[in-house]
Computed example of a mutant assay.
Amino acid sequence: MKTAANIVSILVAGVVLGLVFREFRKPKAATGPGPGEVVYQPDVAPGEEPTASKEEMDVPEVVRLDSPPLLNHFELIERSGKPISTDDLKGQPYVLSFFFTTCPSICPQQNQRIQKLQDEFAGQPIRFVSITCDPEKDTPEVLTEYAARYGADKEQWLFLTGELDYIRQIGVDMFRQPIAKGFHTEKLVLVDAEGNIEGMYVQTEPVHMEKLREAMRSMIEPK
């Protein structure tokens, strides 16, 4: 009986070892490309070099409007106290954004990126327009102090305020962006010299920021 039991134990052990060995021989399942690895795009022919990394492939497309905005004109108060309207902005392209001065994180980062754009395009025929979404606190005096933190040029980088309901209407009806008190998106809107919206760029995406720079250059370079 003891011999039979030993034989059975040996056979069971052999089966178990065989199964374990087969598992090790199985090819590993694909887990996808790692960080920084190149992803081959569907439109790249065999033998051609791909042009995008995995990070770039994951970036959402720049938003383009497929229909005219419901609102095509606004007038707000600049930090200088001067009224500024879309008619005043025509003749030069501009990059528009929403923010509020007491924002602890997103707005400072966003305005630092705009500051870099201002420095890069200093003296060029392009403006930056920042509209507060907390106008009750962000008076012209507060905006003046806030703009100074970023070295905002008084002519090239405008800071606008007004009534919240009106600003909310501007955001939704003109720029397709939800606006509430102390709430806004992370998108920068590029508007051409005629007042048409060229596209909306996510300021936290490096790929979008580079595309924005390219679009800005194309608008101001001589044809």
Rank of each mutant, 00 (worst) to 15 (best):
K2Q: 05
A5H: 10
V8S: 09
I10N: 07
A13M: 15
G14S: 09
V15Q: 08
V15E: 07
V16E: 06
G18E: 11
L19F: 11
L19Y: 13
V20E: 09
V20G: 09
F24W: 12
K26P: 03
P27A: 04
K28C: 07
K28H: 10
A29Y: 05
A29F: 05
T31N: 13
G32D: 03
E37I: 01
Y40D: 13
Q41D: 10
V44E: 10
P46L: 14
E48K: 15
T51A: 09
S53I: 00
M57G: 02
D66L: 09
P68D: 14
L70W: 10
L70A: 15
N72F: 12
L76A: 02
S80C: 03
P83E: 03
S85D: 05
D87L: 08
D88H: 13
L89M: 11
K90M: 10
Y94E: 02
S97N: 15
C103D: 07
P104I: 10
S105G: 12
S105P: 06
I106P: 00
P108Q: 06
Q110V: 10
Q112G: 11
I114K: 04
K116F: 12
K116L: 14
Q118F: 03
E120M: 12
G123Q: 09
Q124K: 15
Q124D: 11
I126H: 05
F128A: 00
V129A: 02
S130Y: 02
S130L: 00
E136C: 00
E136M: 01
E136I: 02
K137G: 03
K137P: 00
Y146Q: 01
A147P: 01
A147E: 01
A147T: 01
Y150S: 04
W157G: 03
W157V: 03
L160R: 00
E163R: 07
L164M: 13
D165R: 05
Y166E: 14
Y166Q: 11
I167E: 03
I167N: 01
I170C: 04
I170S: 01
D173R: 06
Q177M: 12
A180E: 13
K181M: 10
H184W: 05
E186P: 06
L188W: 00
L188M: 12
E194N: 13
G199Y: 06
Q203F: 08
Q203H: 14
V207R: 02
V207P: 02
E210T: 12
E210L: 05
E210P: 04
K211L: 15
K211T: 09
L212E: 03
E214G: 07
E214V: 15
A215H: 06
R217N: 15
R217V: 12
M219T: 11
I220N: 09
K223M: 07
